[in-house]
């Protein structure tokens, strides 16, 4: 359903991405990892049409990105940017309503199914209680959930998320990841998430794409991602591995030595 082949993105002289190829089936969950500056955000932005590609192809449903108008693309793919959204001058519910743009023409009226999409998004992300609040008054964890809710109200089969948990405390990280897992497992949304959390990536049922220096360093299933040599090559850092006492999963810890 998603097919990226030999993707190239340059910014003036600098190559941000080169020769990125991967494919993802409907309903799958891809985590994009890699060191800072590896091009993870650029990949999502190129897929959303925010930045232009300089070569290669991005296909959704076998159609190239260029075959979609921006409005058509927004009915297929939604995007949660890295920004927290706490600078936005809107009330939460109004911000979610704006997500229905792609489902409207300039003259069409607000419909019951638009309201239903907004209500569903508020409910699934557990943000109904903030609907009247201004975005500027939300905490980091609250606003991150609202940003996901806003993308969800767009009702797209594909969702791109750029580090949705980076600035959150452990409790809210778990909370936000639970929401994303629910979207993927219960609603069947295809998820591509950029993350620095390698243990989050290295789980059964996830696909992993590791980027380094704008190139694909490794891709494969999550359960075999956490491997000492691979992580060292990727992050220039030693890791030790422990077994989680309850779930039994392998956990990688950065070794300070």
């Amino acid at each position: 359903m998603i097919e990226v082949s030999e993707l190239q993105v340059r910014l003036q002289e600098k190559t941000l991405l080169s020769d990125i190829s991967f494919s993802l089936d409907a309903g799958h969950y891809l985590v994009v990892v890699g060191p800072n500056g590896a091009g993870k955000s650029s990949l999502l932005k190129a897929m959303m049409g925010i930045i232009d590609k300089d070569g290669g192809e991005i296909l959704f449903h076998d159609q190239p990105l260029s075959a979609y108008s921006q409005r058509e693309l927004a009915r297929l793919v939604s995007y949660v940017p890295q920004s927290s959204g706490r600078e936005l001058p809107f009330a939460v519910e109004d911000f979610l309503k704006m997500s229905r743009y792609a489902h409207h023409s300039a003259l069409s009226e607000w419909q019951p199914d638009d309201q239903a999409a907004v209500e569903d998004a508020l409910r699934i992300t557990n943000t109904s209680q903030f609907r009247q609040r201004q975005m500027t008054t939300l905490s980091g964890g609250e606003s991150q959930r609202v940003m996901i809710a806003a993308a969800l109200a767009q009702q797209t089969p594909i969702m791109l998320l750029d580090e949705p948990t980076s600035y959150l405390d452990p409790h809210h990280q778990v909370e936000v990841h639970r929401v994303i897992a629910r979207l993927n497992e219960q609603l069947g949304i295809t998820v591509i998430e950029v993350s620095h959390d390698i243990n989050h990536a290295g789980q059964k049922g996830r696909q992993v794409l590791a980027l380094a220096d704008g190139q694909a360093a490794w891709q494969g299933p999550g359960e075999i991602f956490l491997e000492k040599g691979r992580l060292h090559r990727l992050y220039q850092q030693d890791f030790v591995f422990v077994t989680h006492p309850i779930s039994g999963r392998t956990i990688a810890l950065a070794d300070p030595l």
Binding site: K45, S69, Q70, R71, A74, S78, F95, S99
Partner: peptide
């Protein structure tokens, strides 16, 4: 007003 990135991702041909 929400910024170019959000506007584009919501479907605006910015």
């Amino acid at each position: 007003m929400a910024g170019d990135e959000i506007a584009i991702s919501r479907g605006v041909a910015v």
